[in-house]
Amino acid sequence: MKAESEFHSFLVFRYPGVTFFINRNSVETSLFLEPGRQSPGFSLSKGFSTDVFFDGEHLISYDLTRFLETMGPVDKSGPEEQGRMGGVGLILPVSRFSSAHPSPLANIRGSGFEERVSETRVAVTVGRHGEAESIPFREIRLFSPSLRYPLRRRGLLGCRFPGEGECQWFLDLGWIWMNAFRKATGDTKVNDGE
């Protein structure tokens, strides 16, 4: 049932070079990560770790700043800084991912993780907290049709021009996590074009 509300709750993350917002509903909760706990973890490509521990399980977490750097200059404080500040872990239930992509954790078994990892949740780490904002739908724009679907598959759903020459991106963390994970595990079906 679609609600006729003109607003929806989003989490807005503001970096000096790029600002994005995500569907509030896609995040179960967010955690403060202790400083210095960032570790490369396992043998997948950089960006992934099993540091985030939630509800008795280790979660496979992806460092979002890697993705954000493709959009524009992110906070100069990189993962090290993030580690020092601790950062924020966004807990994403797999069940809330878009049904457009296959089960994201099909490859987890047999990927050589040392600890037991959750198969129902994943995490995305960001450098700072997001602010909850109610954004009216009419402010959110989809891309030009020619670009719409290709960008959507990469996690860019749309954008918003709140004014003063600013452009805010509407991201789907599920897509972003999936693409990164596939690339890390050598799944050549997904090519993020870079």
């Binding site: 049932m1 679609k2 609600a3 006729e4 509300s5 607003f7 929806h8 709750s9 569907n23 509903n25 896609s26 809330r96 878009s98 049904s99 457009a100 109610s134 739908f137 009419r138 959110i140 724009r141 989809l142 049709p145 959507r152 759903l157 749309g158 789907d172 599920g174």
Partner: peptide
């Protein structure tokens, strides 16, 4: 009023509202 919407639902709504001509 805030209700649970996943991204797909949002996109559908946006598509409908934009009224691409």
């Amino acid at each position: 009023m805030r209700e649970f919407m996943n991204n797909e639902a949002i996109l559908e709504k946006l598509s409908a509202d934009s009224g691409d001509t």
